[in-house]
Design a protein around this nucleic acid. Structure first.
Lengths: 252, 252
DNA sequence: CAGTGGTCTAGACCACTTA
DNA sequence: AAGTGGTCTAGACCACTGA
């Protein structure tokens, strides 16, 4: 409720790194996000106007604006013309990123493990050829993995990958797929995702340790790399009592 | 696969409205999106560099950049420094907006109908008070609605609204909730959403016409308005065979 | 090395909100 | 009327990519 404006400690505004690789707007956004996260800027707090803040940081208005916009896009700040910029209520900072389940779990302090059930090169079916946009004789890597956290099965993951013969089976047991692909020069940039639910099949029930016919949360993903090419089609089936998909929408 | 650069018809670049309320960058983004949607700019097409395009439109580089960035954020374009801007493969333009289910269905040409099951003012429970950040004696509007499309039940929606005594019961039968709130000065700006699945209860099964214990897709949402205040907490239960949640992630 | 996008600046004008 | 964010311009320098 409070729309109080609070003076911030001076050290917040100094010490930006103008030579390193991190853009100024990103550094500023990071600092402001930290202030929101640690409660220095509580819900409802009104920020100074962007020109004044820019001056404090020693930045031009466009750069300061851009820093603020990063947090608006994350759903942490709200702006109104003629009024000002405020911290959103209940802004527990949370991700909904293009990251891997493996990283998510590890970041939460859980111990992710992976069992590789299927690892095979195959020539794609006609439908898959169409979906992936590859030639009929272009081999595709087909993976089926069971991901657990602290020993409890969480997700059954099925992937079809283009041009990834270098992804080794053993390495898949201990690392996230996206991380491995990134190292090999294929960075995921865009992913289109469809989420729904359905009844567990006999096999899924067995692997995920749930009741046959019970609810399964399913996610279908098409991932594109930095050149706009499809690099992966994934189908993931989650145990709904163990996993929730979270995301933030921001009106543009 | 094609990284062909194609000449665009000259009329694409002319006739921007410099006096109307629609920003130039939005007009340009709209035009480019249309070109992608209608196949004039097929998957993989490489765009001219941003300075050249800006000149064609008669725009400065920052404005042209901003127009392009809109489409990058939508997942339609991909950019690489030193290389250029390309149309993403398989870019069927699709939404994942902060819009209402009612609008979504209507836009798809289906006939949405709504049955209001519960419409009551109530004093929030302690937990709800905490969640909404309201006073204990602040009344909250509690709604329970069944949304159908073409006569088939799609979703069971439960909402707790702050300060919305002006939302009439009858009107709810024929319009979307968000649209009604917008008219009353409360525009949704941010929504934090959690998606999972669970087994249908007896009541849900009856209302949604599914099997008891069968899969239900559930979405929990906290919505904030333009001043960062919570205005709604919603729980929606979807029939998974009739509804899929779609969203696009873009790496920043 | 030429061409691309990424960042940053300094300033201008405007629309909207609030009082 | 004063203060805010929203838009737009004109230019600069840099980092990265690929031939």
């Amino acid at each position: 409720m409070s729309t109080i404006e609070r003076p911030l400690p001076a050290e917040v505004f100094s010490g930006l790194d103008r030579v390193g690789p991190v853009p100024l707007y990103a550094q500023v956004a990071e600092r402001l996000e930290a202030l929101i996260a640690d409660g220095t800027l509580p819900s409802g707090t009104r920020l100074e106007n962007e020109i004044a803040m820019g001056e404090r940081f020693g930045l031009s208005r466009p750069t300061m604006r851009r820093a603020i916009q990063v947090l608006v896009d994350k759903g942490l700040l709200v702006r109104r013309r003629g009024v000002g910029t405020q911290v959103v209520q209940g802004s527990i900072t949370r991700r909904a990123e293009l990251s891997s389940l493996y990283d998510d779990l590890a970041q939460d302090g859980r111990r992710p493990t992976t069992e590789v059930l299927v690892y095979e090169q195959l020539l794609p079916s006609p439908e898959l050829t169409q979906l992936l946009g590859v030639e009929v004789d272009h081999p595709v890597l087909h993976l089926r993995r069971l991901r657990s956290a602290d020993g409890v099965p969480i997700a059954l993951m099925e992937n079809h990958l283009i041009a990834a013969p270098t992804v080794g089976r053993e390495e898949l047991e201990h690392r996230g797929l996206y991380e491995m692909l990134r190292e090999r020069g294929s960075t995921m940039r865009v992913a289109r995702q469809f989420v729904t639910a359905r009844a567990a099949t006999k096999e899924e029930a067995k692997l995920l340790d749930v009741r046959v016919g019970g609810p399964i949360l399913t996610l279908e993903r098409t991932a594109y790399d930095q050149s706009g090419q499809i690099v992966e089609i994934g189908h993931t089936h989650y145990r709904p009592d163990r996993y929730t998909i979270e995301f933030t929408l921001v009106a543009k």
